[in-house]
């Protein structure tokens, strides 16, 4: 029922959009539905000579996967260390607190200066965007592991290493997963934003910016819809895993 209720607004928005588009009657301002749908319905055919929607989406996804995986590979071990050993936390904390409020896109000029135009710069921006939510959630998750759980492990004979693998990591996993989910969302925003900037010659961000230059507003809207749908699907995937594996969270007794 709530699912159905949730569909009402998108339908109203589409109807409203079509009505306004007909009234305005200016494809350079608001294109009609019937010019956007064909773009979406033929995802494998070339769009404005930039490659197909699917090609561009795959390029963006590839960049995100690189940057995101790199961020997770750094943030999870670091976060576990910081959560477990206050020395590490004290060592890194101030530095990270200063860097954290800097918007990922503020690193763009520096990224270009260091890595030139290309995939490395984009991956770097995604990395910066994703690392903080993953790191902070990992630290929180590790700190939230109940002391009793650790002591039970110790009294049952767990070594320091086993405490980590059998108690701390599984106990922190749901919160780490939340960090990954949030981090992925930010990565996706970062890749599109980074592709809007001068330099890239492919990707969904590039596609919609290129479409803007050609005045193809219908392609921009189609691109935005694709960006939104990919973000949605991935997020649902994260949620499904959460439900399947980490359903115990909040049920500790």
């Amino acid at each position: 029922m709530t699912r159905r209720l949730g569909l009402v607004l998108p339908i109203l928005l589409i109807i409203g959009w079509e009505v306004v588009a007909i009234i305005v009657n200016n494809p350079f301002f608001l294109p009609k539905l019937e010019t956007v749908i064909p773009v979406l319905l033929s995802p494998f055919s070339d769009v404005l000579g930039t490659g197909s929607l699917v090609d561009n989406a795959l390029v963006s996804i590839e960049r995100v996967v690189f940057g995101f995986a790199l961020a997770a590979a750094v943030a999870i071990p670091l976060g576990i260390g910081m959560g477990r050993f206050s020395v590490l936390n004290d060592f890194f904390d101030i530095t990270l607190e200063i860097l954290r409020p800097v918007p990922p896109l503020a690193w763009v000029p520096l990224a270009l200066a260091w890595f030139k135009i290309g995939i490395v710069s984009i991956v770097f921006i995604i990395f910066i965007g994703a690392i903080f939510p993953i790191l902070l959630n990992t630290v929180d998750g590790v700190r939230g592991v109940k002391n009793t759980w650790i002591e039970v492990g110790t009294t049952l004979g767990a070594s320091e290493r086993q405490v980590l693998t059998k108690v701390v990591i599984p106990g922190a996993a749901p919160t780490i997963w939340t960090g990954l989910r949030v981090g992925f969302g930010i990565s996706w925003m970062c890749v599109v934003a980074a592709e809007l900037l001068p330099g890239p010659t492919s990707g969904l961000g590039y596609l919609i910016m290129y479409a803007y230059n050609l005045g193809e507003i219908n392609v921009i809207i189609a691109g935005i819809i694709v960006i939104g749908l990919i973000g949605l699907v991935v997020d649902q995937g994260f949620k499904a895993v959460e439900k399947r594996w980490f359903g115990w969270r909040g049920l500790e007794r």
Partner: peptide, 12 residues
């Protein structure tokens, strides 16, 4: 072996 007051089982 030690048995604690509560919250000692691993929920996962």
């Amino acid at each position: 072996a030690m048995i604690f007051q509560e919250y000692s089982l691993y929920p996962w």
